[in-house]
């Protein structure tokens, strides 16, 4: 029977938006985003519960004033530089997505984190430090205000302001054209893979 490589992950993602949440700090690592102790589950189903688990709680285990506690229901995270560095765990963007994040605006991202966002259909756009800080402050002042990412036009709109942003070319193409499900895409190239493999002296008797 023909394998089902079409799983609905072929959605065209041209715009995402909603209220925002600032997550300030450079080099926010994936151990903070999703502490390792919560990776002992064989599915991603519960990951939203563990998002920034330690950072969001005080010593008594009660919620503190972490932005994720103050901006519940937000769809757009606004972060600083080298966000998502460290461990490759997809658990981190999975937790963000399952918590409700549909898009990220930041100064820069660690590469594996950005790749993982692409795999999940989460646009991760970039702009300069001052613009990010301005947007973070605007969200603090306008918790109910909408922040819209236009992936196709490469802009972000909040309040009366529209700014140009950057997005990795491959990520933009994949999201806008609905080809971010790379399994389906690459599965259709099997005969070409065989040809590549034939040229590799270390692969013997491949199937």
């Amino acid at each position: 029977m023909a394998p089902d490589t079409d799983t609905g992950a072929d959605q065209h993602i041209t715009e995402v938006g909603g209220t925002g949440v600032p997550i300030p700090g450079d080099d926010v690592d994936t151990d903070q985003i999703l502490p390792a102790k919560f990776m002992k589950e064989v599915t991603f189903d519960n990951m939203a519960d563990y998002l920034f688990y330690d950072a969001r709680r005080d010593d008594d285990g009660e919620f503190n004033d972490h932005p994720l506690n103050r901006f519940e229901g937000a769809s757009i995270a606004v972060v600083n530089s080298n966000f998502g560095c460290g461990s490759s765990r997809e658990h981190a963007p999975q937790a963000m997505m399952r918590w409700g994040i549909d898009g990220v605006i930041g100064e820069s991202y660690a590469e594996i984190f950005r790749d993982n966002c692409k795999s999940l259909g989460i646009p991760a756009v970039t702009t300069d430090h001052e613009t990010v800080v301005e947007l973070q402050e605007w969200i603090e002042a306008n918790p109910d205000g909408d922040v819209e990412i236009d992936v196709e036009a490469k802009t972000v709109t909040y309040g009366d302001t529209t700014i140009d942003v950057d997005i990795d070319g491959a990520m933009r193409e994949a999201l806008v054209d609905g080809i971010w499900d790379t399994t389906a895409l690459m599965y259709s190239n099997r005969s070409k893979v065989d040809a590549t493999v034939d040229g590799l002296p270390y692969v013997e008797g491949d199937d």
Binding site: E90, P93, I112, D115, T183
Partner: peptide, 8 residues
């Protein structure tokens, strides 16, 4: 790589 890429 992330888990979706492991699937790939």
């Amino acid at each position: 790589i992330g888990t979706s890429q492991i699937r790939d």
